[in-house]
Design a protein around this nucleic acid. Structure first.
Lengths: 347, 347
DNA sequence: TTGTATGCGTTATCAC
DNA sequence: GTGATAACGCATACAA
């Protein structure tokens, strides 16, 4: 397919070439490109044919300048966990594929006092079509207001519904943890420990709430000694689990707020010569690659992260000519408990 | 800091505003922005002051249109493995941080017959400053030529030096695998199996070469039955290892061409009731999160992937005003063997 | 050393 | 329905 068929010098055709070749004005070509409704179907077709013949593609830079808006989607995050960033990227990109939109990745530093200012200058400069905000910075209402102020569409991803459906892609962390812990209780566990995520993370709070609610619903009091905070990292899981396993009586099960810490807990158990799941049951959260590949395979919670990425992109594209049918109620995504081999009844 | 200080209506200042405020022409302002050498130091300073006062930032869209070149770096890949994509991203972004460049991620499908055409239209449309090509598509010389033709800078990442230093960021896979296998031989192993990567991947070939060279150097013949191909996925590692462990006499050590397959091999050993490392030694490749978190912690090869990402970005930025000092000879990156607990002398 | 005129490729305005 | 003309904000060629 020679896309430069009618253009001498092999320069890429511009809107002017199309206008000349099809005997209409630039503006009319522009109308065809942008699917203007008030257009004679006949001229529409003629121009469209020329466009196809020449392989003309509008120049994104020129459009961006004229429209004061880029055809770019931003992924703004603070590197929470690799699995999440990559999964979201994958979901977003799969929706963007075939459209005129591209993905631009922008890590930020949530510790920085200039976070909002940084994002502001980024958005002002790049004039993005929209952004996806990942946790934990997605929990910052200031950023959402900033997007509104700058006229930049946004979708927040999070562990709870902290915005309206058009701006939110949420998972039901609290409920699924409730289910997981209830399952532990169901097979007979009574002393259950939790390794929480770090204070300040909404996901940490939601998961802990699910844990406590499950205990409460079963009439079990929460023993403060069985609640230890972690940082979502392997070492913190190792340390927290060691602490938990020092308690007496020892807990017979541990819910770790993510897989990495769960795998740390597994190591802690092994150091003490404890068999998992015979002596200690463990449930994680995330269903990362680790979960299925460690021994024993980890019972954990699977987050439909890629689907959430797709939903986020669809929300951002809503109303454009690249819009895809949006599934109604596509704001809340249900995580599910994946049963593997790290849970057994207590001895 | 009110960046709209002197601008009524709070519109962002343009080059015209700066020119007016500092009493010079647009062109002079443009020269200041682009660090033109032939400039009166005095006017330079005056304009610079105004720029700082107003918080003026040149509009990237307008620059892109005028320069026919965007301030964007592309990461083009075919989703080889999550660790690699993310590591490269991290490295690239850390170099791009603070510059005017942004990162745009573009997954492609190497199976598609239109791969080159797809990349071409992507590059033609986006007018990127440069691209980073990840394996396995980085091994495609056609893509490199395409970049040259389109005047798009590029850097290829790979397991061997398949381009000149300015366009290549390579790791020494063959040598480090030679080292790893020699180490196995050194502690006494004689029957060593290998789970290779899929045919057609340069990395697979390099690693296998390293394996065979190490055996040859030790005067050990390669037993074809001890060479099994995998797909770089967990299941293939499980299957390949099962095959290897079926041989008699059984191999006492296995080199798996990546961690995911190594972890599959670990599961295969466990199924047979074999103890690692007492009955079977295993070495992986990648040093992914899995490696340190499985049991026993996996001896593996660490790839300086983030550093390679940084180097790639630095090469792409060379010659720009955002250029960073480039370490000489920054084309070959040395992987290293990470000793953990999955290797022991044979019984 | 600095300024003027013009172009980059598209969209918006407002006529016809 | 369609078209001439002026933005959009910056850079380049060529003068001065």
């Amino acid at each position: 397919m020679d896309s430069d068929a009618n253009i001498p010098g092999s320069a890429k055709p511009t809107i002017n070439d199309i206008a000349r070749l099809s005997g209409v004005s630039k503006k009319t070509v522009s109308r065809v490109i942008n699917r203007s409704p008030l257009l004679n179907e006949e001229t529409r077709k003629r121009v469209d044919d020329i466009i196809r013949e020449t392989g003309y593609v509008p120049n994104p830079q020129a459009r961006a300048l004229a429209l004061r808006r880029n055809f770019l989607i931003g992924l703004v995050h603070d590197n929470p966990n690799a699995q999440m960033v990559l999964g979201m990227q994958q979901g977003i990109l799969s929706v963007l594929k075939g459209t005129e939109y591209e993905l631009i990745v922008r890590p930020v530093d949530r510790g920085s006092t200039t976070l909002v200012a940084d994002v502001r200058s980024f958005l002002e400069r790049q004039r993005l079509h929209g952004v996806v905000l990942l946790p934990p910075i997605s929990e910052d209402d200031g950023l959402a207001r900033l997007c509104d102020e700058l006229g930049c569409r946004y979708v927040r991803m999070g562990s709870a519904e902290l915005d309206d459906a058009a701006h939110m892609v949420a998972s039901n962390d609290q409920d699924v943890v409730h289910e997981a812990v209830s399952y532990l209780i169901g097979v007979g566990h009574r002393r259950i420990g939790i390794i929480t995520g770090p204070t300040g993370f909404r996901s940490a709070w939601e998961r802990r709430q699910g844990f406590e609610r499950a205990l409460a619903d079963a009439g079990i009091a929460v023993d403060p000694a069985l609640v230890v905070e972690g940082s979502y990292r392997f070492e913190s899981g190792l340390g927290a689990a060691s602490k938990l396993l020092d308690c007496s009586p020892r807990p017979t099960a541990i819910f770790a707020s993510n897989d990495e810490m769960a795998s740390g807990a597994l190591h802690a158990a092994r150091r003490l010569g404890l068999d998992v799941p015979a002596d200690l049951s463990i449930i994680g959260f995330d269903d990362t690659a680790i979960a299925a590949h460690i021994w024993p395979p980890l019972t954990t919670v699977r987050w439909p992260i890629v689907e959430m990425g797709k939903a986020a992109a669809r929300k951002l594209l809503a109303g454009t000519i690249d819009a895809q049918p949006e599934v109604p109620g596509e704001a809340l995504f249900l995580s599910q408990l994946i049963h593997r081999a790290s849970v057994a009844p207590p001895k």
